[in-house]
Every structure is written in structure tokens, then in C-alpha cells.
Amino acid sequence: MNNPGVNAVSHDTIDTRHRSLWSDVWYQYRQHKGALIGTAVFLLILFTVLVGPFIHTIDPQLLDILDKNQGPSLKHPMGTDNLGRDTLAQVMAGGRVSLAVGITAMLLSLVLGTLIGVIAGFYKRLDGPLMRLTDLFLALPLLPLLLVIIMLFRDPLRSAFGPENGIFLLIVFIIGITSWMQTARIVRGDVLALKEREFVLASRSIGTPARRIISRHILPNVLSPIMVSATLGIANAIITESALSFLGLGFPSDYPTWGRLLYDGANFMTLTPERVIWPGLAISLTVLSVNYMGDGLRDALDPRIRGR
């Protein structure tokens, strides 16, 4: 897999250009039309959310009671809510939080999943207990438990870390520690197979310590499944966070995410349907584009497909 020389010989002419693994991956990734469009849409959403508030400078929390429940206009491209807050500004501010939650929770679950997967695969003694732990987590009813945990620990954390950081930490933490299981299982399976390969045996025979075998030989080789589960992790975290907020148990109204905007907008659906459509569309487009990116990445990182 790490040998570019094998791939460099094409059918009729010998290609002398230097080809690295990542350029091959990128070449294959570009063949996947859905993945390219997905990447473009995701980058566009990211750009809008990050730069948009500097262009559309209305404060998302600014109350303008005279302009309440407005339809789309030049001043308010997505209309206003029942307190006269600008919907576009809120969607952009909510997107920052939603995406931040998605990415941070994904990183947490990835680190946990990789750690547990590598340890369980590499150390035979810990395999049994860690995999039983994974099975146990898989058997937990996650959505009810998430709701319960948020309900019970929301107020103490809000008073400890401030209203905004408290709820952010809580949600990222609980999404992270309840979504690492799939990553751990995949990584463990790969590590179990890699451990028996000759290059690991060779490095073991020259006396390489276990942690260096893991960091130099095992981890680079399990990178592809980890990257694929990273994309799925972002999508999953964003959906979970929106679901929690949609049930009224996530972020508060004064610090909204896309899910919370949807929840607040649902009561004014008959009056201003834009309040439901825009945040919902933002969630759906983000998740769809991330899923397509994951699809393309899976194909691009699979050496059996990449050669063709």
C-alpha cells in the first residue's frame, strides 16, 4: 500500500512522474462526482457560517419588535422571528455552534474509539474486557440516556462553566462518549490483522517497544478506516445534537443551534415557514454533503478500488 513504485507502471507507457499515496488518493477522490459536489457544498456552508456574519452584520440576538414575523426582504433575507430577530444572522450563528459541536464531538469519539480499538487489538489481555465494555455501550439506549443526562446535569454545569460553555462541554462530552463504539470495533479488527503481519514481526524482533510499534507501524495503517469514520462521526454528531435541541433539551434559545432554531420555529410554522425551512435545510445539506464526502473517501482509500 505504501509502495508507489508498483503503481507507477501503467499498461503501455512507463510513467516516470513521482506519485505518492496521497496524490493517488486525491486522484481517486476526484473521480467520485458526489464526493466533489459534497466537498464544495460543505466548504460553502463552512465559509458562509464563518465569514457570513462579517458581511451580514445584524446581531442575531437584536430584538426588533416592530419588524417581527416578517417574510423575506432585502433587509432580512430569511425573514425575522416572533421577537424580530433576523433569521439569517441566527442561522449563521447557529451554524457555528452546530458545526463546532459536530467537529469537536467527532474528534473526542475518534480519539476514544482509536485508543480503545488499538489497545484491545494490540494487547490480548485487555481485548476481552474492552470488547465487553464496547458491547455494553452498544446495548445502552442512547437517545433516552442522553436526554436524561442532559436534563440532570445541565444546571450544575451551566453554573460551573457559565451558561454557554457549560452546555457546550456537556453536549460534546456526552455525544463523544456515546459514539466511539463503531470506530473502536473497526480499528480493533484492523489492528488484529496488522499485528500478525511480517513488518510488525520484524520491528518486534529488533526490539522496538510496543508504543513505538503502535505509533510507527499500526496507526498509519489504520488511518483510512479512522478517516472514514471521522466523516460519519461529524454527520452523526450534528444529527444527535439537533435531535437533542429539537426535543428542547439541548442548547437554550439565547445560544441557538440549527436544531434549536428548528424547535423554536416549529411553533410558528403556520405564520413563518421560513423559520423551519432554512435551519432544517442547513442541517440536511451539511449531513448530506458530509455523507457524500465519506462515501468518496471510502472509495479513494480502498486500495482494491483505487487501482482501477
Binding site: 458526489g34 439537533s242 416549529a266 410554522m269 440536511s284 449531513v287 457524500y292
Partner: peptide
């Protein structure tokens, strides 16, 4: 892919 990505609370609304 769309049905899988769009959350049920949005399709419902």
C-alpha cells in the same frame, strides 16, 4: 442518500 441524511424532525415539519 438524501433520505438517510435528512433528519426525521425536518422531514416531519
Amino acid at each position: 442518500m438524501v433520505g438517510f441524511s435528512v433528519p426525521t424532525f425536518f422531514t416531519g415539519l
